[in-house]
């Protein structure tokens, strides 16, 4: 048991580096998503940058990194936006973990196969928005919601997801290339 706890919770240099690089990237995306008016031209909707990055982290790094990043990103997004239905920690976890599970098993680890995950993230995010809107605004007309919010959001997530995924992949590669102390000693 003691061995297991040490395995999971010892703050190694590699773990701290991952937290700093990926945490910083997720924080930057959170600020961009919630502050910059990137959806002004398309129905004032917001692309799911954070969930896209979580999926890319799970896919290009590992399911463990994806799951933890998903929980943290989902919780921060919920806390930041103050939504009543706090589904995002669970959704973020599922996206991060299962993106990592399919990578290398069902799909090869490449940017094109990751497109499948991006599509899935866009649809899942759309469903989350629909649930949130239905709970917060029961009098909403479903057609208006689909046409003016859900579809623009889907398109924006797909468009913005590509650069977000590429940058995330680049960060994963950079993080892996940084030599650890142990490597240096060797």
């Amino acid at each position: 048991m003691r061995k297991n706890i040490r395995h999971y919770f010892t703050p190694t240099a590699s773990l701290m580096r991952k937290i700093a690089i990926f945490g910083g990237w997720l924080l930057l995306l959170l600020l961009i998503q919630s502050t910059a008016d990137i959806g002004a031209g398309l129905g004032r909707t917001v692309p799911a940058l954070l969930l896209t990055a979580v999926s890319a982290l799970g896919f290009f790094d590992s399911e463990k990194v994806g799951a933890v990043a998903g929980i943290a990103a989902g919780w921060a997004l919920d806390a930041y936006s103050g939504s009543t239905v706090a589904l995002l920690p669970l959704v973020g976890f599922c996206i991060g973990y299962f993106s990592g599970i399919v990578a290398g098993r069902l799909l090869p680890r490449g940017i094109l196969p990751w497109g499948v995950c991006l599509g899935a993230v866009s649809v899942i995010n759309m469903l989350c928005t629909a649930i949130g809107a239905a709970v917060t605004m029961p009098a909403l007309r479903p057609l208006a919601l689909i046409w003016h919010t859900l579809l623009p959001e889907l398109v924006l997530t797909l468009l913005w997801g590509i650069p977000t995924g590429l940058v995330t992949r680049l960060l994963v590669r950079i993080e892996r290339k940084i030599p650890t102390h142990r490597n240096n000693n060797e």
């Binding site: 297991n4 799951a67 919920d78 009543t84 706090a86 995002l88």
Partner: peptide
């Protein structure tokens, strides 16, 4: 998978507690 179970429990707790408190 212990990692899966622990993280799932954390995610569920965060989601449910925040939703219940908000409601």
């Amino acid at each position: 998978n212990k990692f899966f179970l622990i993280t799932l429990a954390v995610a569920l707790t965060l989601s449910l507690s925040a939703t219940i408190l908000a409601v």
